[in-house]
Design a protein around this nucleic acid. Structure first.
Length: 437
DNA sequence: TCTGGGGTCCTAGGACCC
DNA sequence: TCTGGGGTCCTAGGACCC
């Protein structure tokens, strides 16, 4: 048995902790550059705002419907997430943190009334952290996900499901008749692993609801859609195919990419952006004690804008795997210079570190010549990187950067929160000396 | 004016090998 | 004329997730 604990409208709920006045308002949290909505309150959803809706298309709702938009503050959300996960882990003996707002909890061996325990846990998270959650319980992870969807929908849209399933839904406790009714009311696209494309194809062949999918032939589905779909159906039938993954595995690739606030034409600002992205990716790389064997750089124009389009990437191998910011930045910039072409309005760039391997110590500090040609003391690159990471961890990202990376030469073209706070709230925040202190 | 930023897994097809 | 039958590795692209 598994539970899925999920924070409702997570980013919006995080913001509401500090701004209770937003509790009844339609609120959206916007992506980088305030480009599009990445979280919506229930009131915002009721206005018909879609996930990922571009801000310029919904902006008019500020006036007409009192919509409030906030720039994302991922540092804050990460911090609140950690506290929420810690409390949620008390629900059972094992936990997989699946995303910033969701965790699966293994319920093996847990005695007593699971629904009651789950309700207690919800209350605790709400009271201690201030985040409303919903909890789904099922025999497999896929069923727990489904139960969570039902719990959320029963709360948000009364009438769709029995009201007693709101907030906490334990599928195992339903009578066969109720289970059938609930699964027949649930669209097949709500199943974990069934996205837009596949749900369209399923519906074309008469599989419209979760009930239909659960009853379908696994072999036929496997033949048509592959093993992933077969696993999904088996999970829906109650046969666990997916285990809890308690230890997050190291990433196999690490990326840092951003869209720009305004289009960029010339090379210099692109070099600066790519250098910064590489620095950030290198930090993530070192945090998981890996080294990269290849660096991929890409630049592209906006597919949404008229004008000549250009999208190109290049992958450069490193002489030997490295986690050194200077090496990685030099390589990335070299790649950028290879693919850059003038005359285009670039909207996005990114860096990916590939071919990751475990950091190995034999290349470490032993072989390093401590003095340079002039006899002066040198610092080993690994020590330098360690110091860099420590300073940045303590004093905030970007406090210390590598001069050769070309950073800090001009205004940033990809913005981060500090430069981007929705003006109204920058002001409001500044007017609150107590809060600032 | 203005459209996110990460990731994973699977499959098909080509190149190459014996 | 007749032209096998596996394997593996790599890459690109599709589909999905939050």
């Amino acid at each position: 048995m598994y539970a899925l604990v999920d924070g409702n409208n997570f980013y919006v709920s995080c913001e509401r902790i500090f701004r209770p006045s937003l509790n009844a308002c339609p609120v959206v949290v916007l992506s980088n550059n305030d480009g599009c909505a990445i979280a919506r309150s229930n009131e915002a959803k009721a206005l018909g705002i879609a996930m990922g809706a571009p801000w310029f298309k919904i902006q008019h709702l500020q006036e007409s419907a009192g919509l409030v938009a906030l720039s994302a503050n991922f540092t804050l959300y990460g911090d609140i997430s950690q506290r929420m996960m810690t409390i949620a882990s008390g629900l059972g003996p094992s936990q997989e943190v699946y995303s910033i707002d969701e965790s699966f909890v293994g319920l093996h061996g847990v005695r007593g009334d699971l629904s009651k325990r789950a309700h207690t846990m919800r209350e605790r998270i709400l009271q201690w952290i201030g985040i409303p959650t919903c909890i789904g319980i099922g025999a497999t992870k896929t069923l727990a996900k489904l139960a969570n969807h039902i719990a959320k929908t029963a709360e948000r849209k009364p009438g769709v499901y029995p009201l007693e399933l709101a907030q906490v839904c334990d599928l195992e406790r339903l009578s066969p008749a109720t289970l059938k009714d609930v699964l027949q009311r649930t669209d097949v696209s709500e199943v974990w692993g069934v996205g837009r494309r596949i749900s369209a194809q399923l519906k074309a062949s008469g599989i419209e609801t979760v009930w239909d999918l659960r009853a379908a032939s696994t072999s036929a589905l496997r033949a048509r859609f592959g093993v992933v779909m077969e696993r999904t159906v088996r999970e829906l039938q109650g046969h666990a195919c997916l285990d809890l993954e308690e230890l997050p595995a190291n990433k196999k690739e690490i990326a840092c990419t951003r869209s720009f606030g305004q289009a960029v034409v010339s090379l210099a600002p692109l070099i600066e952006a790519v250098s910064a992205f590489t620095s950030r990716a290198a930090e993530k790389l070192r945090r998981q004690h890996s080294r990269a064997g290849q660096v991929l750089v890409f630049i592209r124009t906006s597919p949404f804008r008229p004008g000549p389009q250009y999208s190109q990437s290049v992958t450069l191998p490193l002489l030997r795997p490295s986690a050194d910011t200077s090496t990685l930045v030099q390589t990335a910039v070299m790649g950028l210079q290879l693919i850059y072409q003038g005359g285009f309005a670039f909207a996005k760039a990114g860096v990916m570190l590939l071919e990751l391997s475990d950091e190995d110590l034999e290349q470490g500090e032993l072989a390093f010549d401590q003095t340079n040609d002039l006899g002066a003391q040198r610092v080993h690159p690994q020590q330098l990187m360690r110091a860099l990471d420590q300073v940045n961890q303590r004093h905030g990202r970007g406090t210390l950067t590598i001069a050769s990376s070309g950073l800090g030469l001009g205004p940033k073209i990809w913005s981060m929160r500090q430069e981007r706070l929705t003006p109204r709230y920058t002001t409001a925040w500044a007017d609150m000396p107590v809060a600032r202190a």
